[in-house]
Amino acid sequence: MITVEGLTRKYGAFTAVDDVSFVCQPGRVTGFLGPNGAGKTTTMRVMVGLTPPTSGRVTIGGHLYQDIPNPGLHVGVLLDASAQHAGRTGREILTIGAQTMGLPSSRVDEMLELVSLSPSESKRRLRNYSLGMKQRLGIAHALLGDPSVLILDEPANGLDPAGIRWMRGLLKGYADRGGTVLLSSHLLHEVEMIADEMILIGRGKIVAQGDKKSLLAGAATATTLVTSLDNAALASALTAKGFDVQPAGEGLKVGTESVEVGRAAAENNIVLTDLRYGGAGLEDLFLELTADTQREAATEGVQA
C-alpha cells in the first residue's frame, strides 16, 4: 500500500506538487495520469526518497522509503529506463541490482526470461537498446527482488502494441496476487485498459480520482450522438427543449443524456437509426479536468 499525505514539493517559486493525497491499495493497479509536467514524476521521486518533500509525506507499507532496509526486496522501482550507464550490458545492469540486493545470479536469468530479452540481447550494451528494450530491462530490474509494491513511471513508453499487452497482463497478474501497482502515464488509453483505480493530476494538483465508472459519472457534460430519418425535425425539437444541438457527420451531436434525445424523438414520432453516448469517454474528461487546472486554482467538483 502506498499512502501519500498532503505532499507538496516546491522548487523556488514553482510548485511542482501541490498538497497531493491519495492511496494505492494492494491487489489493485492504480493509474497515475496527467499531462507532461503535471508532477507525476516528482511525486514518484519523493516516494522513493530521491527528492525530499517540502511538506507532507509518503509511506509505503507503513514506512518511509528511507526506513525500509534493502528496499529493492520490498519496492520495485522504475523511474527512467534510460537512467543507467550506457556502457553496461543489460545483464550487467541486472547483475549489479541483484548483487546489491543479495540475490543469486540465477534471478537475473529468470528476469531476463520474464521480460523476453534473449541471451544475445542481454549481452548488448544499453546504448544499443531500443526504448522498448530499455523498458523491458527496467521492468525486469524493478521485479528483481520480488517486491510487493511496484512504482513505474511511464513503463509503456516505447513498447510496441504486443509489448504493451504483455505488460498489461504482467501487472494485472501481479496485482491479482496481492501486489500494489502504481504506474504513471500521460496516455489515457494505456491507463484506462489496465488500471482499477485512476488518479488524475494536473499542474501539481489532483483533479479527480476513482475508478473509471465513478469518474465518468462525475463528468460535467453529457453528450449524445444521434441519427434519425428526420434530423431537421429532431434538431428543432431538441432546440425547443433547450438543448445544444450541432450537426455531426450524418447526424447530430446533442448536449444532453441519450434518454432526453430518445424522449424528444418519441414525442415527435421521429425514427432513430442510431443513438449513442457521444463523449469520447475519459479522454474528454481528462482534457477538461486538466485544462481547468490551468484556469482555476482547484477543481473540487469531480472529486470522487
Binding site: M1, Q25, P26, G27, I60, G61, G62, H63, D67, I68, P69, N70, L73, H74, I96, Q99, T100, M101, G102, D146, P147, S148, V149, R177, G178, G179, T180
Partner: peptide
C-alpha cells in the same frame, strides 16, 4: 511476495540492511 502485502503493511523486521561489504563490492 510476502503474505502481509494483503494487509497493505510491509513487515521489515526480518529484512537486514544491505551490508557494507556488499555495497563496496558492487561499487
Amino acid at each position: 511476495m510476502s503474505a502481509t502485502a494483503a494487509l497493505g503493511q510491509i513487515d521489515i523486521t526480518s529484512t537486514p540492511h544491505v551490508p557494507m561489504s556488499r555495497l563496496a563490492k558492487v561499487e
